[in-house]
Amino acid sequence: MSKTDYNYEDEKRKILEKKVRAQQTFTKKIEIEKKPEWFKVKLPGGENYREVKAELKKNKLWTVCEEAACPNLSECWAAKTATIMILGGTCTRACKFCHVDTGNPGGKLDLDEISNAAKMAQVMNLKYLVVTSVDRDDLEDYGASHFANVVKAIKQSNPSTLVETLVPDFNGSQKHMHTLAQSSPFVIAQNVETVERLTYDVRDRRAGYQQTLKCLEFYKNHYPDISTKTSLMVGLGETVDELIATMKDLRAIDVDIITFGQYLRPTKRHLPVLEYYHPSTFEMLKDKAYEMGFKFVASGPLVRSSYKAADYMEHLKAQGHMK
């Protein structure tokens, strides 16, 4: 382009128009992601919270509650409930909703996790501890024996602490599922995460909807005394009819506990939030779930898979199933 062909004012106008379009697009995205008025998070606080946090730091122990900045942290800690993650911090799968690092841990295991989990239950004087993990497809047994050893250590050193395990699918291996279940956790949870239609839009392709159902069915068929649990995120483009159909699939295999919570986008690289459910919709889902026969349901904007976990224990006590 020659100097005579170049029009400074015209170029300036084009640049300005481009900036305006970019700002409009950005504003539109912000409006879509903007949380509604009812979606308020109370900051953690209270004497019990500060004491427990100080004690954990002194013992170099870390909960998922803190790492994930969970909005329900104070409430759960006050109820002597917490969540710990084992098998390291690198997942071999890449679900599109999850903020956990993805990679290949190369078969490495931190065996101190076993004693640390037991120590955490003791330090926090826990009534209920949820043990979860990343997926470890790099391990021969997908981490099942390590999971079982953690459960056994907690139960041995803290018999009064009930343990819920939120487990990977162990690649659908019945041998490895037996290994986990034989450690006798109070609850075995595996999250279906979303409705069947959206499974491969949301989850890693190795984590199928039917695979999760088969795993939950296996635990219920072989270990009927252990309660089974699953959780779903909402706001990813599913319909209420699809959520109800999912509940029917879960009740067909006698899943005991279900939770519903609002999906929140961790970063711009993750799936966008397509809808924020109103609290009344969460209440409707809760009512439907109880009508279908689920033994315990937690449903609300801030509900996460381990939220109100210990309430199931209180629910069973109230029904005379536990002392």
Rank of each mutant, 00 (worst) to 15 (best):
P105E: 06
C95R: 09
N116V: 00
T90Y: 01
L87T: 03
C98Q: 07
T92M: 04
C95E: 08
L111G: 07
D101P: 04
F97D: 10
I114D: 00
A94E: 09
D112Y: 13
C98T: 11
L87F: 01
I86D: 00
T92C: 03
K96G: 08
G89S: 12
I86N: 00
D101S: 12
L109T: 13
K108F: 12
D112E: 14
G89F: 02
I84V: 13
T102E: 11
E113Y: 00
G103F: 02
T92K: 06
N104D: 14
G107S: 13
T102F: 07
G88F: 03
T92W: 08
A94N: 15
A94W: 11
G89D: 15
T90M: 07
S115V: 13
L109K: 04
L87H: 00
I84C: 09
D112A: 14
G107K: 10
F97G: 07
E113L: 05
G107H: 03
H99I: 15
V100Y: 01
G88S: 01
K96Q: 15
A94G: 06
C91K: 02
I84W: 01
F97N: 09
H99S: 15
G103T: 06
T92V: 04
C95D: 13
A94R: 13
H99G: 15
C91Y: 05
